[in-house]
Design a protein around this nucleic acid. Structure first.
Lengths: 233, 233
DNA sequence: GAAACGGTTCGGTGCCCGCCGAAGTGTTCG
DNA sequence: CGAACACTTCGGCGGGCACCGAACCGTTTC
């Protein structure tokens, strides 16, 4: 009885279209302000403020107050997993008709973007496929990291071995992409790969958005490490 | 925009306490009638009927009409995964104070039960732990099935190798148990193990409920195959 | 200090939805 | 055939909540 109330309470946080829009926007892992989110969802700032307070109270978001701004972001990888899991079960929805300006934006997003703390888009899928081909990931097992995969992260990417001993998070985890309709690697492995690529300046963010694009050294690294050559957009 | 509406629509199906109670009851994988679910949730049959129609329309449940009965069950493993994922994120809730009759029922459930199509409770956790100890599962990787695990399913449990080539479902998958607060193996592996134990009459259902208990031959099989000796309840 | 800005609080409005009981349909059983 | 049963449909009631604009508070800028 009380258990169903808890489940319903959690679901009701996401059951409003405006709050759902906030959650989807925040899935890029960055921190947004109240006004930005209000504009994104098309509601008044007062409405957004109330919704966001509910999401914070419900534990889905955390807030960081700074001057006259209030920055909001997802409360952690578990929330991102939760939202991804839900979003993956939404039946294939009618795509909004493409606009001229919209298609340029979505072309950049389709090439590569952050999905919370890992990579998605064509780049994310290509990395996943290449790692699976080399026996580093086991796609039949929910993108599990193989022993060879652990070794590759350490020797190929230069990740400290103790970084792989996260007690809570699964090493490899499948995340369903909604532009490619393909799974790509998330979990601790996805986060470490993304972080390495950004830290090494192999990928850089476009503007203030979540889209990312390879730098020249990144294009080289993708080919050298994984044999990936991205086709033109 | 339309994407957030889809996400909100899916969440709103679970956002009602009565519908959430239905979903939790159906998580045992069996088919229930409208009247049974209405009694379980404490609402009128007419109310339950309307709720259940919504859940069917939303794709979470499927129905099978048979005579004057309407049997309802989860639409598939993906729905069970979805609900498990949500339920796992509900913050540790105040346990309902135990009643005398209730404690006997929950003792049986705590020992062993079906959780959709795999095993949960102390039996489910014990099997998972034993398989991990023998190197058949990789707990750090989301309960992924190792190559040794595949071989064990075929040679130890007598499962046909082609049964392991399910294109869609992950082989191993972690499922969080809410009585043990421990992960246990789900996914295709969990389903095959559960099915083998039931088919071999190593476990039998208690009454019409979802609780299961080992038979004498099952106690023997648990010790012989995995070295498991269950302590008294 | 004044003006601009980001955010919050507060009334008020309208809509949606969960609930029930009563009446109706179809099935089973005697 | 009639009674019991499982379920559905309908009307009506009540509560909750998403939304907005206006007023207000604190910060930044000029």
């Amino acid at each position: 009885m009380t258990r169903s109330a808890g489940l319903a309470g959690l679901a009701s946080l996401i059951a409003d279209p405006t709050r759902a829009a906030f959650c989807l926007a925040l899935l890029d892992g960055r921190a947004w302000t109240v006004t930005e989110l209000a504009a994104q969802a098309g509601v008044a700032a007062s409405t957004a403020s109330e919704h966001l307070s509910r999401l914070v109270d419900g534990g889905l978001l955390i807030e960081r107050r700074q001057g006259r701004h209030r920055y909001l972001q997802l409360a952690g990888p578990h929330v991102a997993d939760l939202l991804e899991g839900l979003a993956a079960h939404v039946d294939p929805v009618a795509e909004p008709r493409p606009t001229l300006r919209g298609s340029r934006v979505s072309a950049a997003l389709a090439l590569g973007r952050t999905c919370y703390d890992h990579l998605a888009g064509r780049i994310g899928v290509a990395i996943t496929d290449a790692m699976a081909d080399k026996g580093l990931l086991d796609l039949a097992n929910g993108c599990a990291l193989t022993p060879e995969g652990s070794a590759w992260l350490v020797e190929g990417l230069g990740i400290a071995p103790n970084r792989l001993r996260d007690t809570k998070r699964p090493l490899g985890k499948a995340c369903l992409d909604w532009t490619e309709r393909r799974t790509h690697v998330a979990g601790l492995t996805g986060a470490l790969v993304c972080r390495t690529f950004i830290d090494n300046a192999w990928l850089k963010r476009i503007g203030s958005g979540r889209a990312v694009t390879p730098t020249p050294s990144g294009t080289e690294a993708l080919r050298g490490l994984l044999g990936i050559t991205l086709s033109a957009p």
